[in-house]
């Protein structure tokens, strides 16, 4: 890893958002935390993060939809995205990867495991 990386995280549950933020900051990343999908899309374009961690079930624009739009945009199609979800069925995981996720972490997650996955995917 070279220098501080910017990670965008999006989750509608404030506690989990704070938890993910704490975990990633502990690993030395700079974190942008947002509460919904629309904000996440805006932040990607404004801040150009190195990686995004998206919760799937968010109101209005959910994580899968954010991912779909990111992949459809040439500028952001290469952004590593980890989906974070309480939907833990095999089918959910498969749908996540089919939509273009780089990783899939099931809730509840181990903070150490999440930190490792983020580190693996950062270029």
């Amino acid at each position: 890893m070279s220098g501080q990386r910017l990670v965008l995280i999006a989750d509608d549950d404030a506690d989990i958002l704070a938890l993910v933020k704490a975990v990633l900051e502990r690993s030395g990343h700079e974190v942008v935390a947002v509460g919904d999908g629309a904000e996440a899309l805006a932040s990607v374009h404004a801040r150009k993060p190195d990686l995004a961690v998206l919760d799937i079930s968010m109101p209005h624009v959910d994580g899968l939809e954010v991912l779909r739009r990111l992949r459809a945009d040439v500028e952001t199609s290469g952004l590593p995205v980890i989906l974070l979800s309480a939907q833990a069925q095999e089918a959910d995981v498969e749908r996540g990867f089919a939509t273009g996720a780089s990783g899939y972490v099931k809730k509840p997650f181990s903070p150490r495991e999440l930190a490792e996955r983020v580190a693996e995917l950062l270029p």
Partner: peptide, 13 residues
């Protein structure tokens, strides 16, 4: 699962 995520995550942290 959502509340459990917070409980388990913060405990580990």
């Amino acid at each position: 699962r959502t509340p459990l995520t917070s409980i388990i995550g913060y405990l580990e942290l």
